[in-house]
Amino acid sequence: MKKIYVQEEWCLKCRLCEYVCAYANSGCENIVFALKNRPISPRITVEDDGKICFAVSCRHCDDPSCLKGCISGAISKADGVVRIDKNKCVGCLTCVLSCPYGAISVGPEGTATKCELCIGNAGGTPMCVRFCPNRAIICE
């Protein structure tokens, strides 16, 4: 299975990835309806300490701590992709605490959300990869 990688050398911290991610996972067809005047919950975040910056999203670890820590069995891994079943998630946020990359966040419904490589939506190339203006995010 392909994974999303970031090439920090090329990250411009424009944060477009965050917005297109939120759009891709909003279920809305129109990007303005999806993002205007509402809090967004992207599954990729640009980390920036002034010297270095890059976008962080789920690494789909070989041995995922989030999966091990999940108390409700909502997190599973199949075909190399770690996914969260929001119907099973009870919102305890153990996964948020256990993820070493800080790649899991709380979604609009109070359940945990994370990057699932856009499998459930756009299909094909993840949106952050497609829209990164400088090819800083790649999927290989």
Binding site: L12, C14, R15, L16, E18, Y19, V32, L35, K36
Partner: peptide
């Protein structure tokens, strides 16, 4: 203004 979502990408670029 109808379309602007205040993402501030323009500001950063």
């Amino acid at each position: 203004r109808e379309r602007c979502i205040n993402c501030r990408v323009c500001e950063r670029q």
